[in-house]
Each structure stands twice: as structure tokens, then as C-alpha cells.
């Protein structure tokens, strides 16, 4: 039985020697700051025109693409784009669709016509399917899906029409800020340490034990409730704590950074990873390795 009590200390932001140059190049603004008085630029998200002057309306970093200026807030709700992989939780079962919570401004929508029926059937949805919607997905279930389109009010329309998407089984959900998840070609990774991860673009990260080879991909409606072995559990718990440590230090999350962090955390016990000094150490080692790899 362990109890860890201590007096609070002011946490310093750790920074590496080589990374200081990065901070100088960023143009950071707060709402009301004038970005430029030049009228030759087009207005993008996060800005407004005030007396011929382009002013920022959110606190963030200025991005310039040729003639387009927009301000990207650093901590924001998830703004979906077509093709993003997301992990979401069902909040409501409505007439022909499910409402999914994805950490965005509005709940996303999963239409009945956008899911795979169990068994992989391809047929027209009948009235009976509508009545048995709850048998497929209930309130509280987790799914992985892809963004099909964006409605005019900003709500996302999702689909699970591939065999790799669908209802998620046993595992652990970690919630981080959406801006920390790096955009990559694939978001499903089978990590060599013995677990798998889905890095949702909306900041929901799903850790689960790697499914065995004999499991067919059934479109994801069969969830195995078998006992997950202890060794897999330890790996998953360790990964979860590493993800939280990386998120607390605002490190970009992708498979390499997660793996480096896992390896540098092997020195410590799983429950000690979340202590402030251990977190600092692990993240520093990870950052160093990432810099070395890039340079």
C-alpha cells in the first residue's frame, strides 16, 4: 500500500538546448493583435477585418500560405476534416443514426447507412434494422471511424465502411488535446512492445491488446470479453501513463515518440511514471532521442 504525499512545487518548463531556435520563428498573437495592415492578403480562420487591418480573433500561431493568413489556436476543440480517423463514444441512439461524441463543437453523426452490417452483408437497410439499432451500438460504446463529410454547421458525418473500423472492444481510452496528434498516413499502429494503438485525430487515443492472428476481421461488431493476460495489461498501463506524460509536456504524439517514451520509461515502475520528476526525466530523454533522430 503506497501513499505519496508531498508539498507542491512550481513546475518549470523543460526545454532542450537545440530547440530554442524553434520558438523564435513562431508568430504568436492574442485576440485583438493586429497581424498586418497590408491589404493584399486573404482572410482565413481565426481573423477578422477591422478598419482595413487584419486582426486576430483567437490566441494562437499565425500561419501564412502564400496570400492566405489564418490564426491557428493552440488549444482548441477538434475541427474535423474529410479523411481523418477518429475514436468516438456513442451518446444517443436516434431514428436512423447515432450521435457520437468526438471532442468537437457539435456531436458527430453516424448514419445507419454508413455502417457495415454484421457479417459483412451488403443490402438495403430495412425497417427492422432501424428497430434493432441498439443491438449494434448502444449508448456508451466506443467506435473507430473515418470522417466522410462535414456539414455546413461544422458537424461531422462519420462512416465505418471499412473492416478496420467499427466497435472497439477491451482496452483503455486516453484523452489528450487534438492538436498534439500528428497527421500521418496511418493511425493504426501495432507497437512492437506488445500492444496496439489507434491515434484518433480528435485527441482520443485507444490502447488495446494486439488481436491474435486467428481473429477474423468481422467488421468490428463482435467484442471479445475474454481475459486479457497480465503481461499485455502491464504494457497497456505503461503506455497509458507515457501518453499522459507526453501530453502534459506538449510533445507531438505519433508512433515513434510513443515508442521512445515507452522504452525510456522501462527503468521505472508503472505507477511512478506519473510523478512529476519521473515525468520530466522520461520526456527529456524522449525529446533528446527525437532530436537526434531528426538531426
Amino acid at each position: 500500500m503506497a501513499v505519496d504525499m508531498r508539498l507542491p512545487t512550481v513546475r518549470k518548463q523543460i526545454s532542450l538546448a537545440g530547440s530554442n531556435s524553434n520558438a523564435d520563428g513562431k508568430h504568436l498573437v492574442v485576440p485583438g493583435d493586429v497581424i498586418t495592415s497590408d491589404t493584399g492578403f486573404m482572410r482565413g480562420h481565426g481573423t477578422y477585418m477591422d478598419d482595413e487591418k487584419l486582426t486576430a480573433s483567437v490566441a494562437g500561431e499565425v500561419e501564412r500560405v502564400n496570400k492566405l493568413i489564418c490564426v491557428r489556436p493552440l488549444k482548441t476543440r477538434y475541427n474535423g476534416e474529410v479523411g481523418d480517423v477518429i475514436v468516438g463514444r456513442i451518446t444517443e441512439v436516434q431514428q436512423k443514426r447515432w450521435k457520437v461524441e468526438t471532442n468537437s463543437r457539435l456531436d458527430s453523426v453516424l448514419l445507419l447507412s454508413s455502417v457495415n452490417l454484421p457479417g459483412g452483408e451488403l443490402r438495403r437497410r430495412s425497417a427492422e434494422d432501424e428497430l434493432t439499432m441498439r443491438d449494434y451500438l448502444q449508448e456508451g460504446d466506443l467506435i473507430s471511424a473515418e470522417v466522410q463529410s462535414v456539414f455546413s454547421d461544422g458537424a461531422l458525418s462519420l462512416h465505418t465502411r471499412s473492416l478496420k473500423y467499427g466497435k472497439l472492444g477491451q482496452g483503455v481510452l486516453v484523452q489528450v488535446s487534438p492538436s498534439l496528434v500528428k497527421r500521418q498516413k496511418t493511425h493504426f499502429h501495432n507497437l512492437p512492445c506488445g500492444a496496439s494503438i489507434i491515434l484518433g485525430n480528435n485527441g482520443f487515443l485507444w490502447l488495446y491488446p494486439t488481436p491474435g492472428q486467428q481473429d477474423e476481421e468481422e467488421g468490428g461488431y463482435y467484442t471479445s470479453l475474454e481475459l486479457v493476460p497480465l503481461s499485455d495489461r502491464e504494457v497497456i498501463s505503461r503506455l497509458r501513463n507515457c501518453l499522459l506524460a507526453l501530453a502534459a509536456h506538449k510533445v507531438l504524439l505519433y508512433d515513434t515518440s510513443v515508442l521512445y517514451c515507452y522504452e525510456s520509461s522501462l527503468l521505472y515502475q508503472i505507477k511512478d511514471i506519473l510523478k512529476p520528476e519521473t515525468m520530466d526525466e522520461i520526456v527529456m530523454v524522449t525529446r533528446q532521442r527525437l532530436l537526434d533522430q531528426e538531426g
Partner: peptide
């Protein structure tokens, strides 16, 4: 082995001021 690696009788890290 709980989700965050603690045992059944372990407390989370506490800070008291």
C-alpha cells in the same frame, strides 16, 4: 493491476499545501 498501474490499495500522487 489497475488501468494506471496502481495496486488496489494505492493512492494517487497527492500535493498538499
Amino acid at each position: 493491476l489497475r488501468v494506471d498501474g496502481r495496486g488496489c490499495e494505492d493512492y494517487r500522487h497527492m500535493e498538499i499545501e
